[in-house]
């Protein structure tokens, strides 16, 4: 049984559905990438999972729980974590406070120590306000914040946005290691080819719909799909 299952999901803002008829699954300890052109509705899909879209129909089931009936703040305790594309840290709080503020964390002080071991650059800046960090440090903090609650599924919305290639590689390496730590990953990425390379499966979106889903190997070997949707990096 899938850890996350979206069935016939339509979501959007105001009177408009940005995505329709979305069916998507993420298995336990699986990395699943969602790729597509700008405006295809990739971020709306992950926002729908987190309950952050004003309009939502269809079914979103996580670990047997129908999420559409569960308040956003309670989804953390079910094992979901989320890294938004922008404003993904609390800018006015220090690095340490960003980690302390996450709710429902067992053995918090040990978990914070684990995060500082995982992201040593953050340990040196624990008293610095997140708003004063560099882009790369802030992205690491966003990732550490999402891992604090030992999630079963991390939902990542373009974690490499505005990062240098070197920092992107670092972030992707962390994503790649999530299944070892017990977490599945649903990742939306502009650098679709790179994301699909380290994923188990991928979904390709266009104009608010999923147009293709397959294993990463098959997606990457499909020349026409690769040319149209996956780009060169």
């Amino acid at each position: 049984m899938s850890l996350l299952m979206l069935e016939d999901v339509a979501a959007g803002y105001g009177d408009t559905d940005v995505v329709t008829g979305v069916n998507l699954q993420v298995g336990d300890r699986e990395i699943v990438a969602v790729a597509g052109t700008n405006g295809a509705g990739k971020s709306t899909v992950v926002k729908a999972v987190m309950g952050l879209t004003p309009r939502l129909s269809g079914s979103v089931v996580f670990d047997g729980h129908e999420l559409t009936r569960i308040p956003i703040e309670k989804r953390v305790s079910l094992g979901l974590s989320y890294v938004p594309q922008v404003q993904n840290t609390f800018a006015a709080l220090t690095v340490l406070e960003n980690l302390q503020v996450v709710e429902r964390v067992a053995n918090r002080s040990q978990r914070i120590k684990d995060m500082f071991d995982l992201f040593p650059a953050l340990a040196d800046r624990r008293r610095t306000a997140a708003g004063d960090l560099s882009g790369g440090e802030r992205q690491q903090l966003a990732f550490a914040r999402a891992l604090m609650s030992s999630p079963r599924l991390s939902v990542l919305d373009e974690p490499s946005a505005a990062l240098s290639p070197a920092l992107t590689a670092q972030v992707f390496e962390q994503v790649r290691r999530c299944p070892e730590a017990g977490a599945a990953v649903l990742i939306v990425e502009q650098r679709a080819r790179q994301a699909i390379e380290f994923s188990n499966r991928g979904y390709v979106m266009d104009s608010g719909r999923i147009v293709l889903t397959d294993t990463s190997a098959n997606l990457l070997s499909n020349d026409r799909m690769a040319q149209l949707y996956l780009g060169q990096h």
Partner: peptide, 11 residues
């Protein structure tokens, strides 16, 4: 600071 992120952090 960020109400949406706060809710997504379980607050």
């Amino acid at each position: 600071d960020n109400m949406e992120l706060a809710r997504a952090s379980g607050i």
